[in-house]
Nucleic acid binder design. Structure first.
Lengths: 186, 186
DNA sequence: GTCTATATATAGATAGAC
DNA sequence: GTCTATCTATATATAGAC
C-alpha cells in the first residue's frame, strides 16, 4: 500500500474516532512513521486530505453497489447496513455524521464533497427501498425518499448514541433489526 | 443575565454550530466583549465549561419535563421533539450528537456528563412512549426502550443530514411527522 | 471580576537539502 | 519522496495588577 493510501486510510479512521478537527498531521505521521512535512507532499493542505478521504469513500461505495447489483433486495439492504455494522465495536461513528457535526468548521471543498457523498448514500438507500416495494417485500406507505432519510438518520444517530450508553445494551443491532422488521411488516 | 450565564449560553450555541473542539475561548470573549482570561475566572478549563453547558442542558430538560407533566402524551411527545425543532433553521445540530462525534477528543468529565444527559433524554422518551401505549394512543410492538432509541437516533441523525442536503427539502419535518404517524398507526 | 502580559503547547504550512 | 529546520498562527492557561 502506498504512503498516500496509508495516509487516507488512517485519516478516515481518525475522523471516525475523533473528528476532523481533533486529529493532526502529527497523529498520522507518528503512526505511519514519517514526518508531517511528508504528508504535505501528498496533500498540500488538511482540506485536500479531507477531500481525498471523501473521494475514497465514494469509490468504496461504488464498489459496494456494484458487488451487490445482481443480488436480492435484502442483500442490498444488508450491504447498506454494512456501512455502519462495525463502527460501534471499533468505537467509531460514521463519516457523514462525524463531518456533519463539524460542518461549519471545515473547508468548503470538504463540505461540498461531504454533501455529495451523503446524497449518494441516500439515493442508494432510496433505490433499494423502491426495489423492495416493487417486489412486494417492503410495505411502507411513506414517500420512499422520506423513509430512506428516516432510516439513514437512525443509523447515523444510533452509532453516536451507542457510544454514550452501556455497551452491554447493543442498541445498534436492536435498532437495525427493528428497522428491517418494520420494512417487512404488512 | 450574568457573565457566567452568557458564557454558557454562547458555548452551547457554538458547540451546536461548530463542535466543542472547533470553538475557542477567543470566540466567546470577542462576542460578549471580555478577554479570554476573564473566562478562565468563571471556568478554569474548557472542560469545566463543557460540564457547565451539560448541567445547564439537564436543568432545562427537567424544566421542560415539569412544564408538560400534566399534559397529554402527544403534548409530551411534541415537547421531546422541541429539543430539535429549531436546530435546522439555525444551522445547528443537537448537543448530544455534536459531542458524541467528538467523544474520544473530549475530557472524561465532559464525557461522563454527556452520557448522563443522553440517558435522561432517552429515559424521558421511553416514559412518554410507555404512557402512549398504556393509553392506547401508540401501538408499536417493539420493546419500548428500543423504539425510544430508534426515534431519538432518527432525530440526532436527521438534523445532521439536513445540513448536507438542499434546505428546500425539509426532511427534518417530514421525518418527524412520519414518526408521529407511525406511532399512531394500528 | 476583569484586565495586561506572558507562558507553553501545538497546529498547519513552507523552504530547501538530500 | 522524505527529511530538517523554521515560520506563523492560535489554542489553553496562568500570574499578578487594578
Amino acid at each position: 500500500m502506498s504512503t498516500r493510501e496509508s495516509i487516507i486510510l488512517l485519516a478516515e479512521k481518525l475522523v471516525k474516532e475523533k473528528g476532523f478537527n481533533a486529529f493532526s498531521f502529527h497523529d498520522i505521521a507518528a503512526t505511519i512513521g514519517i514526518k508531517t512535512a511528508s504528508i504535505h507532499y501528498h496533500f498540500p493542505t488538511k482540506a485536500d486530505l479531507g477531500v481525498a478521504v471523501l473521494e475514497q469513500q465514494k469509490t468504496r461505495l461504488y464498489q459496494m453497489q456494484e458487488s451487490v447489483q445482481d443480488k436480492g433486495v435484502l442483500a442490498k439492504l444488508e450491504a447498506f447496513f454494512s456501512i455502519y455494522n462495525n463502527l460501534p465495536r471499533e468505537n467509531m461513528v460514521c463519516m457523514v455524521g462525524s463531518l456533519a457535526t463539524d460542518f461549519n468548521a471545515i473547508d468548503p471543498k470538504v463540505q461540498e464533497n461531504l454533501s455529495e457523498f451523503a446524497d449518494l448514500v441516500l439515493q442508494w438507500l432510496t433505490d433499494i427501498l423502491q426495489e423492495g416495494k416493487r417486489e412486494n417485500i417492503f410495505h411502507f406507505t411513506t414517500p420512499t425518499k422520506v423513509k430512506a432519510v428516516q432510516i439513514a438518520s437512525s443509523m447515523v444517530g444510533v452509532v453516536q448514541l451507542q457510544r454514550l450508553v452501556n455497551e452491554d445494551d447493543n442498541f445498534f443491532k436492536k435498532v437495525k433489526d427493528n428497522i428491517i422488521k418494520e420494512l417487512k411488516a404488512k
